[in-house]
Design a protein around this nucleic acid. Structure first.
Lengths: 280, 280
DNA sequence: TGAAATTACGCTCTACGTAAGCATT
DNA sequence: AATGCTTACGTAGAGCGTAATTTCA
């Protein structure tokens, strides 16, 4: 049997071309590598290198072996990652979401409902990746904007998120009862950095606008209170962050200013997560 | 990093359910395994087994880990096999054939022409497997009954093998100048055990016959000399084995009593193997 | 009482580092 | 002379075996 450390060292030698460089990278000494490579050749029963007086050159055998070694080391790392994730998933609810406010809102509800678990949530723009993560058991819960077509996965409607324009009273739109994207395209907005699928809507409908991006939600709140720049809120975000007292919220009437979200989870977890759904 | 011996031991424990049985299979002692499994759990950072007082039960984590371990060990074995084969192929010409006499004949010619190489030949019934072996570089030369459709592989006609009925003078057919399968279907024949693609022809055309099978060519020769049972020879086999002096050979006229064989090899080996081909 | 896992202790083998040697550029 | 691989020697540690202990059926 060929041990892992030998494979790791072989890969390093194949990569760095000389024993000295590889030894440096591995934080061992050169003689140790000389011995290891000789041991490898002895285990295989033939040469993996052309041994010259003061240099070695990997040969065809060594190259093939190092390719395999790389794959073996990758597989070992995958084993560690996957088993570790399996263990973590027993104490953690992993949540993938395509939109920020629904994510934070659900995260808070999960923390209350499943207080013995910890919750890890992650925002991803691509819904395909989210569904992939769910199918590969990398997460147990997903927030998506359309039902998942898979017999083993249940998609339940949870709520519809409506976008609102948030303005100071001095803003021209403040008196309106409703507004459209077209009317405000071209203005400069304060925006959070992570928008999920809303990013597509904003880019398309407000293509002439400038956006002042702020990634930290707390800093954004300070800006919202002090600045006269328009911004956006949603009916879901009101559950999470306090409404800015001075600001007025004007509903946006466009069709794609509203998105219905679905909670997706494996059928086997149906009983666990049904407490999250609205009563019917 | 998790060493191979730990993975091997984990797989054994997962397979044999108890440490004692696994230790037995691995030819080590039970305490060694106890320590190894504890070491594995320490490396992962969590339990892979439910530890009871006097029994241990693998858990979900351990099962997943052992599945990966199995794959890693398989990959390691594949590495050893493939690299070893690559090394061997430098000193050995591997020949796969779908018919016995062409194989032996070519093996003899190879031994003469490439005296610094050793030759390993192998008879396989399935031509698909032969072509697969050639494409995967498991052999450099193949004898097949139809050209291989692959731009990287050259198929050159080498010869056509004709089947002859071999009978003693007393046999009714001995006076004939030619004969067909139909005329002899139902008789009992002496036959070699390995026929390659000829097996299909024999089974189909002589479905009413009985066959006395002898795997050892030398023993078959003795039988052929002493027995009055009919048998088969081919124009190719005459190059290999001495003709039985007492016997007469009657050509078989059926279309599928003749097969044209092709030598298949990678384009890069074209120059090496062209010496084997008939002059044009 | 027997079967099976764990703990304790001692040994051996091995992978490593240090130091020195040697060949090539 | 500098670079880089190899050889020689000593050491610390790791993995294994033996023996004793514990627990459950």
């Amino acid at each position: 049997m060929i041990e892992m450390y030998l494979l790791e060292q072989l890969v390093a030698v194949a990569k760095h071309k000389t024993l000295l460089a590889a030894a440096d990278a591995l934080h061992i000494t050169q003689p140790a590598l000389t011995r290891s490579m000789k041991k490898l050749e002895q285990l295989f029963g033939f040469a993996l290198f052309d041994h010259h007086a003061n240099r070695i050159e990997i040969n065809e055998n060594g190259l093939l072996a190092s390719e395999y070694a790389k794959r073996i080391l990758q597989l070992e790392q995958e084993m560690i990652d996957q088993v570790t994730h399996l263990e973590q998933s027993k104490h953690t609810i992993f949540l993938e979401s395509c939109a920020p406010a629904p994510m934070i809102y659900l995260q808070q509800r999960l923390a209350l409902l499943f207080s013995t678990y910890s919750v890890q949530s992650h925002l991803t723009n691509s819904e395909g990746k989210i569904i992939g993560a769910l199918k590969q058991n990398k997460c147990q819960l997903a927030i998506v904007s359309a039902p998942v077509k898979d017999p083993n996965i249940i998609s339940s409607k949870i709520f519809t998120e409506h976008l609102y324009l948030s303005v100071m009273p001095a803003h021209p739109a403040s008196q309106k009862e409703k507004i459209s994207f077209q009317e405000i395209d071209g203005e400069t907005f304060l925006l959070h950095g992570s928008l999920g699928i809303w990013k597509d809507v904003v880019n398309e409908k407000l293509s002439h606008s400038r956006f002042i991006v702020q990634d930290q939600m707390q800093d954004l709140s300070v800006l919202l209170a002090s600045s006269s720049l328009p911004a956006f809120t949603t009916n879901i975000s009101w559950n999470i962050y306090p409404r800015q007292e001075k600001r007025l919220e004007i509903p946006i009437v466009d069709h794609d200013a509203s998105t219905t979200f679905y909670l997706a989870y494996h059928r086997k977890d149906q009983d666990i997560f049904k407490a999250l759904l609205p009563e019917t």
